[in-house]
Design a protein around this nucleic acid. Structure first.
Lengths: 143, 143
DNA sequence: CATTACCTTTACGTTAACGTAAAGGTAATG
DNA sequence: CATTACCTTTACGTTAACGTAAAGGTAATG
C-alpha cells in the first residue's frame, strides 16, 4: 500500500522549461513571463523550474485562448471558470452568468470565422475558374 | 439620361466619422488611426472626412478580423485577398496558396472555439446540477 | 453674435506581451 | 578542468493599437 518510489511530492512526470517551450513553439521567456503574471506556478528543484502535467495543461489552455485573440487576463478568467472553489449558490449563479457571456462571445467569433471562411471559398473558386478559363494549358502545380 | 443630382463624384450615401464610430462602437480616434495606417482612405469635403459605403464595409471587415485576434496588418492582408488586381497565373496560384494557409488558421481557431464551448457546457451543467442538488429550494433567478 | 456640436491636426502617453542583453550558476562531458 | 548546454535573475527595449490632451476651424442655432 506504500508508494513504491522515494520521490515524495514530485509528480510522476515533470517537464523542464525548454521542453515545454519546444513542444508549444514558444520561447522560454514567454513561459517565464506567464509565471511573472501569475498564470502558472511551477515547482522548483533548487533554482530550476519543474513543470507538472497540470502546469502543461494550463499553458496549453493559455495558448489556445491566445490563438482566438484573448488577452492573458481573459485566459486566466477563462481557466478559472474550470476550477471549483465556488461553493455557495450566489457564486454558482454568478459563474453561470459569466459562462453565458463568454459563450455569446465565442459564438460571435465562430460566426466571424464562418463568414471569413466562406469569403475565402469564393476567392479560391474565382481564382481557380479564372485559371482554368484563361490559362487552360498550365500544368497543375504539385503539392 | 443625365444624372439628376448636381453632386458630381460623391456617392449617393456617405457617413460622417462619428456616425460610423457610433454604429460600430468605436471612437473616432480609432477610425482616424486606421486611416493613418492606410487601412481606409475616405473622401474629403473640405476638411471633413466623408466615408463611402465601401469605406464602411472595410471598417466592418477590419473589426471582424480584430474580433478573432487578427492584427491590423493581417486584416489588410485578408481584405486585400478580396480585391482583384491579380492578373497573371503565378499571382493567382500564389493567392490560392495564401487562401489555403489562412483557411487552415481559421479552421484551427474554430477548433479552439469549439473546444472552449464544450468546456463551458460542462461547467454550466456542473453548476446547474450542483444548484438543483445542493440548493433545491432557491427560486430560479429571473433573466 | 455667443454658444453648441461637430470636425480637424499634432503630439505625447499607455498597456500588453513579450524580446534581448548582461551576468552568472550547475551538471555533464571530452 | 575547460567546454558545452542548459538554467537563473535583472532590467531595459520594442511594437501594436489606440487614449488623451491641446489648440483651433465651421456651421447651425437661439
Amino acid at each position: 500500500m506504500t508508494s513504491p518510489d522515494t520521490q515524495t511530492q514530485i509528480p510522476r512526470r515533470t517537464y523542464t522549461i525548454s521542453e515545454l517551450a519546444k513542444e508549444f513553439g514558444v520561447t522560454t521567456r514567454t513561459i517565464r513571463f506567464y509565471e511573472e503574471k501569475g498564470l502558472i506556478s511551477p515547482l522548483r528543484e533548487g533554482q530550476k523550474r519543474l513543470y507538472t502535467p497540470a502546469d502543461r495543461v494550463r499553458i496549453k489552455l493559455i495558448l489556445r485562448g491566445k490563438r482566438i485573440g484573448m488577452t492573458l487576463r481573459e485566459c486566466v478568467e477563462f481557466i478559472d471558470m474550470y476550477q471549483p472553489g465556488h461553493n455557495n449558490a450566489e457564486q454558482l449563479h454568478s459563474l453561470v452568468r459569466d459562462v453565458k457571456k463568454r459563450r455569446e462571445r465565442l459564438l460571435q467569433q465562430r460566426k466571424d470565422i464562418d463568414a471569413m471562411l466562406s469569403g475565402l471559398d469564393e476567392v479560391q473558386n474565382l481564382c481557380e475558374t479564372t485559371l482554368t478559363n484563361d490559362f487552360p494549358d498550365q500544368p497543375p502545380e504539385p503539392i
